[in-house]
Design a protein around this nucleic acid. Structure first.
Lengths: 120, 120
DNA sequence: ATTTTATTTAAGTATTTACTAAACTAACAT
DNA sequence: ATGTTAGTTTAGTAAATACTTAAATAAAAT
């Protein structure tokens, strides 16, 4: 998910916020962030577009940018797919255990006395 | 939210995955990712810990790392607080509209070079 | 056609970051 | 004490990235 890379910098988060609820031409965005050059804004917008976080609409000599709110949904889906999926977790655990090069399960700090109970 | 910065690189996402369901000592993580030095793993873990994405537990000469799944919840909360809040949206729109009419300090290279002007 | 406006692209610099190797610390064992 | 193991920190480098100014493109106005 490339969106995470695009969202990594505060500047791009700020830009994305500015076009979150409605589209705006690049010039307005630039004027709202006066300490950065127009060129930089344009480059950031390109990154955001590349990550699917914004759409562009060309009209005359303006380019209107607008966030794609669904992309956040995609982000959430990715988070859940990566980390909430039971099969995935098992696979990851297997990787770790193999790295450990030991037949024994991962060490547990203190093992309560057990009798025939099934582990989770 | 610094978590976005920490999650920006695939390497750290991979590391976070490895400790998502259970804790693991840094050495195991290193062995599971054999193409990276131990030092690099340690540094990535420090970043993840700094962002609140993992916890550390010291035991003997081991350091056990474990993801903090709540931190993802925090991330989602942040996303929603930043982008789904109606008041916030209004504020952002106001900023943009003000930028639109009423040109604030425009940051373009000034023309009209004056004779005898002192450049920076 | 020339100029103006809106924006992108190019080229270069500076800062940041991901990495490595080596030095260091801390806990344990001998 | 010395050595070993687990991990971090430091110092340095190479690559990526954010930024700049300047030049290029493209539509509209003159």
């Amino acid at each position: 998910m490339d969106a995470l890379t695009a969202l990594a910098t505060p500047r791009r988060r700020e830009i994305l916020r500015l076009v979150w609820t409605r589209e705006a031409p690049a010039g307005d965005i630039h004027r709202a962030l006066p300490d950065v050059s127009f060129a930089a804004i344009s480059q950031h917008l390109a990154v955001l577009a590349g990550a699917g976080l914004v759409d562009v609409r060309k009209e005359g000599r303006h380019r209107y940018y607008r966030a794609r709110p669904e992309s956040l949904g995609d982000l959430r889906s990715w988070l859940e797919a990566t980390w909430d999926d039971a099969l995935y977790r098992l696979k990851v655990q297997a990787e770790l255990e193999q790295a450990r090069r030991g037949p024994r399960p991962l060490r547990r700090p203190r093992r309560l006395p057990r009798r025939g109970s099934t582990p989770p």
